[in-house]
Design a protein around this nucleic acid. Structure first.
Length: 486
RNA sequence: GGCCCCAUCGUCUAGAGGCCUAGGACGUAGCCCUCUCAAGGCUAAAACGCGGGUUCGAAUCCCGCUGGGGCCA
């Protein structure tokens, strides 16, 4: 076992044959949290040994995903494909120590063995036919150009470890069978490469998905044969789709960048991911990055796989959104307003304070960044479009709406400036009463007139944020529009 | 099929033998607040898969079954 006093070194080792999906992102997050919690080191390694299926775009996508989530790594990215010589050397070492041997069995022979086992309804494991070939003879046959693989000599007994998540876990070695560590084409096999890379990187804790549990005994056997300390293993349960099957494309957005595109905050998304399979042990749910780092421990990871629940993600994002300061909101939302063609970056920067204030108004009733855009749009100059549902609900009777807006127009005209919320409200209520119109009706009508929507922040705050000129202009436009429908 | 992992409200979870009349959160329903919608507050419905043990006592420990998942084939 690794000396527990050693500084923690963890790694995230994605293979770039696909994008960074939510499961991988959570694995990365847990590693990162553990490193930051312990003051340890987070290493990034790209497992690109499957050259055929690995692409630079995928690598770039994975890095972008990690960066979006704020999971910064301290070392790397290292590339597994560049460690070929080390892998080879480790295989040589195993052969020298007689912990591995050359196997000359052909594919056909192995196939036959497998068929026999199947016919007898026995589980298939390699029988170790080449186990006892003398090293000298093996060397001669290799020199003669005979194809061979290198197999690991699995000892008798069982391989066990104390999983940081699952507790004591063990596999009978008899069920493992002498596995290949080097293919006949000279390429190292996954378990060998991972083990060697992890030991070279001084990894103390291997935190990865449950789907690697069955690789673990082989890797432990390799550590032992190489006579190096075995790291702590923590197998995190998988994330499932709503139908409880492994999360995949048909469950919708699985690449983390998709959530970025949908307007989720990285802090909220990682908060959500952290709560999938882990909990702080108390009733806290909405947690900042720092709180997560502070509270995170491996022993609080559940052993049970979790279903990805978008509704909870949305709620959490809304919670994070309403906790942001105006300035932070502005920073997060600005690109979205630009992309929507509502304002340019310089226009927003020019009215930065106003923009931030407007966003805080709107943030409380928003769950994602696009919600902010939808609700923020009417605050910018230009005509508004009246949403059909708003018209239906608030302006069902055009004559009545018109009357309400006449009062509204008079009200706005009388206001020196739209800034004192309390005075505005008192003034509007008084005027409405004097004119014999319900104050609520006036406010609702103003809402549709100036935002085009049924829903907005408080009407006085909204008017204050828009300014007298824009409000007056829109009320006039609405009256004109309504006059055409009486 | 073999091996391994897992099993508390629909979902995420708390629970490490008596504190459990099983707690919190999302979602759902209702109420309050109210110029709308949110937010917030209050309330409700909603779970220990089944069967055996162990124990004075089990959601918690053990065994079996069932179910789900993973890896390999």
């Amino acid at each position: 076992m690794t000396d527990p006093a050693l500084p923690v070194r963890v790694r995230f080792a994605p293979s770039p044959t696909g994008f960074l999906h939510v499961g991988g992102a959570r694995t990365a997050l847990f590693n990162w949290l553990w490193a930051r919690h312990t003051g340890g080191v987070f290493v990034l390694r790209i497992e690109d040994t499957d050259i055929e299926r690995s692409t630079d775009e995928m690598i770039a996508g994975i890095l972008a995903g990690l960066e979006w989530l704020g999971l910064d790594w301290d070392e790397g990215p290292f590339y597994q494909s560049r460690h070929r010589e080390r892998h080879q050397a480790a295989v040589d070492e195993l052969v020298e120590k007689s912990r591995a041997y050359a196997c000359f069995c052909t594919v056909a022979e192995l196939e036959a063995e497998r068929e026999t086992a199947k016919a007898r309804k026995e589980p298939y494991v390699y029988r170790g036919r080449c186990r006892e070939i003398e090293p000298a003879e093996a060397a001669r046959r290799v020199a003669a150009g005979e194809p061979r693989t290198i197999r690991f000599r699995v000892p008798e007994g069982e391989t066990a470890w104390d999983d940081a998540v699952h507790g004591p876990t063990s596999f009978a070695n008899a069920g493992i069978g002498d596995f290949i560590v080097l293919r006949s084409d000279g390429t190292p096999v996954y378990n060998l490469a991972v083990t060697v890379d992890d030991l070279d990187a001084g990894i103390t804790h291997v935190i990865r998905g449950d789907d690697h549990i069955s690789n673990t005994p082989k890797q432990i056997l390799l550590y032992q044969a190489l006579e190096v300390p075995v790291p702590v293993f923590a197998h995190v349960p998988l994330i499932l789709g709503a139908d409880k099957s492994k999360l995949s494309k048909r469950h919708g957005a699985v690449a983390v960048t998709a959530y970025q595109d949908e307007g989720y905050l990285p802090a909220a998304f990682s908060n959500f991911l952290a709560l999938l399979g882990w909990s702080p042990g108390d009733d806290r749910e909405v947690m900042s990055r720092d709180e997560l780092v502070e509270a995170f421990t491996l022993d609080r990871i559940t052993g049970k796989s979790a279903v990805f629940d978008v509704q909870k993600l949305e709620w959490l994002n809304g919670q994070h959104l309403s906790r942001l300061s105006g300035e932070e909101l502005a920073r997060a939302a600005a690109p979205w307003f630009e992309r929507a063609g509502i304002a340019t970056a310089s226009e927003l920067a020019g009215r930065g304070e106003w923009f931030a204030r407007m966003l805080t108004l709107v943030a409380e009733r928003s769950r994602t960044l696009p919600d902010l855009v939808r609700q923020g749009r009417p605050f910018f100059p230009g005509p508004v479009e009246y949403a059909p549902d708003a018209v239906e609900k608030m302006w069902k009777d055009p004559a009545e709406a018109l009357r309400a807006l006449e009062v509204a127009a008079e009200f706005v005209e009388r206001q020196p400036a739209l800034d004192d919320l309390e005075r505005m409200e008192a003034g509007l209520r008084a005027l409405a009463e004097a004119r014999g119109v319900s104050a609520g009706k006036v406010m609702q009508s103003i809402r549709v007139a100036i935002t085009g929507q049924r829903v907005s922040p408080g009407i006085f705050e909204t008017m204050a944020a828009m300014g007298k000129e824009l409000v007056a202009e829109r009320i006039a436009a609405a009256r004109k529009w309504l006059r055409g429908r009486v």
